[in-house]
Design a protein around this nucleic acid. Structure first.
Ligand code: ZN
Ligand code: ZN
Length: 741
DNA sequence: AGCACGCCGACT
DNA sequence: GTCGGCGTGCTC
């Protein structure tokens, strides 16, 4: 019997870190049992969907315990082989449960076992008869009449959902109209092929762009990572476009990953207008249906280029020819909960498996990528020139220890603002803190209003959330109290600085100037940011104040003054990556100024004008910045001079996370065969111990060798779920954490 | 996670 | 008595 037993190894959506073995359903030909198909199985007391990962002949589980799968949900795989390989790699590297890994890659409909057909929608339009007929006949059918009137406004037709949006009930009316022969429909496939008005507008490349393009293209059909380094405005996007053009001309596909904020309609438009072939977009704003449609279309090869955020790394592309990761240093490529994958790192893995080139682009590369380039693992390509005639900006530090500040603005900063606005130019102020003020404090007793669920203070909001306090860590909010909760005194005042406050101050100083605030609070809702950006182009706003949203990827050609209100915040805060982040942010903001013809000026307010890192930043030489940071990482054994894995645990009770982590630590130390190679540090409570009602702790594994760290994780992590103390906490592993918060 | 089972206190 | 909270076990 055992000789030709066929056992199906399935991934099932559950936090359990293992696969589940089943026997094949009755009457299924062996050839149909391809990895990547889905089956319906009984799992415990439930019926669930499983994904076939492998067909094996042996199982760890006793034969009599194996259940038979109920039936196959697919005739052929819904996950292409390269993606299956990538997912399998991710299961092993991130030591996460296979079920959650494989299922996060799928659109919701496929997770639920629905069919993998290209979803369609109905496009309704008027027939010639419907166009010309007299509406008076419809006097007793007001719904039908409304629909006809609406369709006459939209000669290109309307979708069912668009009609449904206008009138709640519509189906019976449409049916009657179809019978009358006034209206008809056609089935359209539901994925929005991105269209562009302008087609084919070719740019000439400068010499360093040309070199980049040809170098990348000579590496086709082989694994080769490139680090494309170039300041904002040096034309990285042009390089991407020329490379992709060549790739898709050979009937291969291209995948472009961008940070969350970078995926603007402008950038999509740019790709569409330059590229022949269908471009599809994948981001968090899509409906489930649209996501499924893009997935199926991509799998069927109907899509040549996918542009998307982090999760687009799971696009089912069978003929991938190149991957591009733009702004590769951006932290949004790392998923920060559950299955904590890094899309940039997975891009490298995919490229290696598929033997294709991968391009990481950035003006301020991550230290990891920079280090890889130095070790010759990545080919470094530099775009030296800023496009156009613009000069690099002049940068000045303002020592604010000896200044009196008004809403965080020093006299020299104010003077510069006045000057640049008088010249008719635009100015930008950067402050990486939302709200009116980070704290509300009692004048009498000094009590600061805390969040009830976090070890943190409530942020004061005056405008957006009209007179409320909000916690940035858990979302809790309340009205601003009239009296101090501790001493009942009524004089509570906001202390510290936020963008709302700066905006208010600027409005009082420059009452006749258009002022825009750009942060997460003013840009909620789709299209809002886009409208603000458009109005900036039109010079409706001349003074901009904002958080890191301002820094990322948008073009503001007329800005000649950039002011950084607080360079120290972030530069000196606890986390090991804080310095890198802040340096990248400051350099990105600096890059916003002085494009086009005008050269720019940058003013940076600081209390530490002599700080080495700050000095390196204002030299605008990123390699100087990197040298300082890399030296620091070398001293501490942090990435890229070392590899990290962080075990996190949280619970509503104070002591349980640490108790679990202590058990976990003991186990790790016992299993650690190479103590010189992997160090177990902690456990300690998290920098902010309580968040959203949970007490949090963490245990850090630091390795000087990645294989040894991985080997320890592989033996250790599967054992953790059997610890008694594990039941009382929520725990998760973070391989290559981007921060230790 | 999601579901079932069994034990114990408390409440109509 | 029996309702329900929660600790424990199990998922091929
Ligand atoms: Zn008080
Ligand atoms: Zn909170």
């Amino acid at each position: 019997m055992a000789a030709h037993t066929c056992i199906l190894r399935l991934a099932i959506y559950s936090p359990l870190r293992r696969y589940f073995d089943y026997l094949p359903p009755n009457g299924i030909p062996y050839q149909q049992l391809q990895p990547g198909i889905r089956l319906q199985v009984s799992f415990g007391k439930r019926t669930v969907v499983g994904i076939l990962i492998a067909v094996v002949s042996q199982s760890q589980v006793a034969f009599h315990k194996l259940k038979q799968a109920q039936h196959c949900l697919d005739k052929s795989p819904i996950i292409p082989t390269p993606l299956l390989q990538l997912l399998t790699w991710a299961v092993n590297y991130y030591h996460h449960s296979p079920g959650e890994v494989f299922f996060t890659a799928l659109p919701r409909a496929l997770r639920q076992g629905k069919s993998a057909n290209l979803p369609t929608y109905r496009q309704w339009f008027l027939t010639p008869k419907g166009c010309s007929s007299d509406l008076k006949i419809l006097i007793r059918a007001p719904h039908q009449r409304q629909i006809i009137e609406l369709l006459r406004y939209h000669p290109q037709g309307l979708t069912s959902s668009e009609i449904k949006e206008k009138f709640g009930t519509y189906q019976s009316s449409l049916r009657s109209l179809v019978i009358k022969g006034w209206v008809n429909f056609k089935e359209e496939c539901a994925w929005k092929k991105q269209e562009s008005s302008k087609k084919h507008f070719k740019h000439l490349l400068n010499p360093s762009q040309k070199i980049a393009v040809t170098t990348i293209l000579t590496a086709q059909q082989k694994f080769q990572p490139f680090l494309l380094e170039g300041v904002t405005g040096s034309g990285k996007t042009e390089v991407y476009l020329h490379v992709i053009e060549e790739i898709i001309a050979k009937n291969q596909q291209a995948l472009v990953l961008t940070p969350e904020i970078g995926l603007t309609p402008q950038i999509v438009e740019r790709f569409c207008s330059h590229l022949q072939g269908s471009v599809a977009v994948l981001h968090s704003g899509l409906t489930d249906r649209e996501r499924l449609a893009v997935w199926v279309a991509a799998y069927e090869g109907k899509v040549a280029v996918i542009i998307g955020t982090r999760s687009a790394i799971w696009a089912p592309l069978q003929h991938l020819g190149i991957i591009i990761v733009d702004e590769e240093h951006d932290p949004s490529f790392k998923q920060q909960e559950g299955f904590r994958y890094h899309a940039r790192d997975l891009a490298i893995v995919w490229a290696r498996q598929a033997k294709i080139p991968v391009v990481l682009g950035s003006a301020t590369p991550s230290l990891e990528s920079l280090y890889n380039a130095r070790c010759q693992r990545y080919h470094l390509l530099q775009l030296s020139q800023r496009a156009g005639k613009a000069q690099t900006p002049q940068i000045y530090l303002i020592d604010i220890r000896s200044c009196s500040l008004e809403a965080g603005i020093s006299p020299p900063m104010l003077k510069a603002l006045e000057h640049h606005l008088e010249q008719g130019n635009q100015a930008l102020l950067f402050l990486n803190r939302r709200g009116f003020a980070p704290t509300l404090i009692c004048y009498e007793c000094g009590f600061i209003i805390p969040c009830r669920r976090c070890d943190s203070y409530m942020t004061v909001y005056q405008y957006n959330d009209s007179h409320r306090l909000r916690c940035h860590h858990c979302g809790a909010n309340q009205l601003i109290p009239a009296n101090c909760p501790q001493c009942n005194h009524s004089f509570l005042y906001p202390k510290g600085l936020g963008t709302e406050q700066v905006e208010a101050k600027l409005r009082s100083i420059f009452p006749d100037t258009g002022i825009a605030r750009i942060d997460r609070d003013t840009t909620r809702g789709s299209g809002v940011l886009d409208k603000i950006l458009n109005d900036i182009q039109k010079k409706k706003y001349r003074l901009l104040i904002g958080t890191q949203m301002l820094a990322k990827g948008h073009h503001y050609p007329n800005i000649t003054l950039v002011g950084i209100l607080d360079a120290d915040q972030g530069l000196f805060s606890g986390d090991f990556r804080a310095g890198e982040r802040m340096a990248q942010l400051i350099l990105q903001v600096i890059g916003r100024s002085g494009r086009g013809e005008k050269s720019g000026e940058v003013l940076i307010q600081t209390r530490h004008p002599d700080n080495l890192l700050l000095q390196a930043i204002i030299s605008q030489k990123y390699d100087r910045v990197a040298k300082i940071l890399l030296e620091e990482r070398y001293q501490t054994g942090f990435p890229p001079h070392g590899y990290l894995a962080l075990l996190r645990a949280k619970s509503a009770l104070v002591d349980t996370p640490i108790a679990f982590l202590e058990n976990a630590r003991d186990m790790a130390i016992a299993l650690n065969t190479h103590q010189g190679m992997v160090t177990v540090l902690g456990p300690v409570s998290a920098p902010m111990e309580r968040r959203a009602g949970y007490y949090r702790g963490q245990l850090l594994l630091q390795g000087s060798s990645r294989p040894y760290l991985q080997q320890l994780l592989a033996t250790w992590i599967p054992k953790l779920e059997f610890l008694k103390t594990a039941r009382k906490v929520k725990w998760s592993l973070d391989v290559d954490p981007v921060d230790l918060m």
